[in-house]
Simulated scan of single mutants.
Amino acid sequence: MKHLFSTPAFRTAIVAALLIFVGLFAVHYAESRADANAGRVFDAEAHRGGRNARPENTLYAYAFAIAEGMTTIECDMQLTRDGRIVLSHEPVLSSDIARDQKGRYVGANKYDLRRMTLDEIRTFDVGVLKPGTAYFRDNASAQKMHDATIPTLEELFELVQASGDDEIQMNIETKSYPDPASGDLYKYNADPEAFVKAFDAIVRQYDMQDRVILQSFDWRTLRLMKEIDPAIRTSALWSDGSRTRDQQTGAYVYLGGLDLDDYDGDSVAAAHAIGADIFSPYYRGLTDAQVASAHALGMQVVPWTVNQQSEMARLYRMGVDGIISDNPERLRIVLAGCGATLRPKRTFSSPYLLP
């Protein structure tokens, strides 16, 4: 007589049971991811204020993000020669958007904000995209504004306060360049400690400690922020470039002194080790395993910069906690279609809010 375990009927029953188990697990896993954001407002972030709609990193863009009901304004900081914080993604005035007092677009790499005073920076307009450029092609829907200058961090906080919106958050990046191989980006880089202390002083002045997130690819600034005020949330930005090593020492230049090899190359574990509250990777590299790992460590996941509707929906279904996008209007439509809970749109009086 054959042993029961070796009969075809038994083997068939085992395979069937395994298939049922795997199927039930898959359904449960999919449902758990779909329900990950149930019962809370999804973090819809306007990248640079929403540069597909308004000139990037201007008060017009930030006002638009508030009116559009975004959860968070995402923006960027540079530290000027006279110690002021201005909001600009690039450390130099962009030849695609910046014009001088005669209306002429500036030359490439001519004006470094970090070597200029605030008064000097104020003389340039950044509200009209230069026709014929790749930037214009990608953001042609942004409205022209002929009086848009690069704002200060204080002006962002004052705009938010004047809007009456006491909930919107601000995810603000220290644009810092720690790689010695990056030429002038590194040569004129702001001192990380001075940068973070200047940021912290303004945050405290406007009582925005629970409204701001400090994000950066340069994890030195995130570690410094936690030393100065552990309560302020930090977001560890991540891309393939985050694995860059110093050509002389072999150290990871962006990771604030961490050796990624100590974490078996796990970027989420490394971000957790510096006390980051949020893991913020380039969306195309984000995996289910990273989302699960970050959540298990008590961190949120907010990928950047997502402009395709199909990708927005896919990431929402993955269970991410937020999405950063150039197009707030499109993001709202997609998230609403996915069943996300969103903040309502707002109306308020402001010279920077267009009809």
Score class of each variant (00 low, 15 high):
Thr58Phe: 12
Phe136Lys: 05
Phe10Met: 07
Tyr60Leu: 06
Pro230Phe: 05
Gly257Lys: 08
Val301Ile: 14
Thr174Asn: 10
Arg204His: 13
Leu331Glu: 04
Pro230Leu: 02
Lys187Pro: 05
Leu354Trp: 04
Ala65Pro: 13
His272Leu: 07
Asp147Lys: 15
His272Gly: 04
Ala36Glu: 02
Arg211His: 13
Leu354Ala: 07
Gln169Asp: 02
Gln101Thr: 15
Leu214Pro: 09
Arg104Cys: 01
Thr174Met: 07
Arg104Tyr: 03
Ala142Arg: 14
Thr234Trp: 01
Ala34Asn: 04
Pro328Ser: 06
Ala30Lys: 10
Glu155Asp: 05
Ala269Ser: 08
Ala67Gln: 10
Ala194Glu: 11
Ser6Tyr: 12
Gln300Trp: 12
Glu311Gln: 12
Met208Gly: 06
Asn139Met: 11
Asp277Ser: 06
Asp112Ser: 12
Val301Met: 09
Gly183Pro: 11
Glu154Phe: 09
Phe10Gln: 02
Ala194Thr: 15
Gly319Asn: 01
Phe25Arg: 14
Ala16His: 08
Asp326Asn: 13
Gly39Glu: 01
Ile14Cys: 02
Asp35Tyr: 11
Tyr316Glu: 02
Asp200Ser: 09
Leu19Cys: 03
Asp229Val: 04
Ile324Leu: 05
Gly183Thr: 12
Ala336Trp: 09
Arg40Cys: 03
Phe199Glu: 00
Ala46Ile: 14
Val306Met: 05
Met170Thr: 11
Gly265Trp: 13
Thr117His: 08
Tyr352Met: 07
Glu31Lys: 13
Arg114Ile: 15
Gln209Asp: 11
Arg314Ser: 07
Asp321Lys: 03
Tyr177Glu: 02
Tyr111Ile: 12
Thr72Trp: 09
Thr123Pro: 05
Gly49Arg: 14
Asp277Glu: 01
Arg137His: 14
Asp119Thr: 01
Glu193Asn: 00
Ala336Gln: 14
Ile97Met: 05
Phe195Asp: 00
Thr123Lys: 15
Lys175Glu: 00
Ser182Lys: 07
Val268Phe: 03
Asp112Thr: 14
Tyr135Ser: 04
Arg99His: 04
Val126Arg: 09
Gln308His: 14
Ile121Leu: 03
Thr149Trp: 10
Gln309Lys: 15
Phe348Lys: 08
Met225His: 04
Ile232Thr: 05
Ala38Asp: 13
Pro303Asp: 00
Glu74Asp: 12
Arg137Ala: 14
Cys75Trp: 09
